[in-house]
């Protein structure tokens, strides 16, 4: 299994073949659409991360110190961004998730979507994942 760093490197490489913004967003949207749909029972108020602009649902699970995630959003772009985030974090050891340096958004020029907590829930989602991972580390030991 690839590490968080390796997955990020792969995403960066994938996007390097897409110089145009339209291509990037089209690809992102496709990623979101292809990602497994979120189980209906996970679309709960508890799992809702409310952004100012869009809604994100984030389901978290912790098994033996490993973090498993599902996500969905009413925005196609946010859903695509969330799918990238899940590629990087879901199935990874909680320890790694809690400490990982998340840099790929910036490298592929999509950092603006993380720029403000209030914008779209993505940053809030990253923060949720990280604090969940910290909890999960505790449970695993």
């Amino acid at each position: 299994m690839l590490t968080i760093q390796e997955i990020q490197a792969q995403i960066i490489e994938d996007f390097s073949f897409l110089p145009e913004w339209d291509e990037r967003y089209a690809y992102l949207i496709e990623l979101g659409q292809k990602s497994p749909p979120m189980a209906e029972e996970n679309r709960t108020e508890d799992n809702l991360v409310r952004g100012c602009q869009s809604l994100v649902w984030l389901a978290r699970e912790c098994h033996q110190g490993v973090v498993y995630l599902q996500a969905d959003s009413d925005s196609l772009i946010v859903k695509g961004l969330a799918a990238l985030l899940l590629q990087v974090f879901s199935g990874q050891p909680a320890e790694e998730v809690s400490q990982a340096d998340l840099h790929f958004f910036e490298t592929i020029g999509l950092n603006q979507h993380l720029s403000s907590q209030r914008t779209n829930g993505l940053l809030a989602m990253v923060n949720e994942i990280r604090s969940f991972a910290v909890q999960c580390v505790g449970e695993g030991s």
């Binding site: 100012c52 602009q53 772009i77």
Partner: peptide, 21 residues
């Protein structure tokens, strides 16, 4: 079409609009 998606794509074309509530 979600307003955030449209706003984001307009932005990449130099068009600044506001989206949200």
């Amino acid at each position: 079409v979600h307003h955030y998606d449209l706003g984001t794509l307009l932005d990449t074309r130099g068009v600044a609009v506001r989206t949200g509530h």
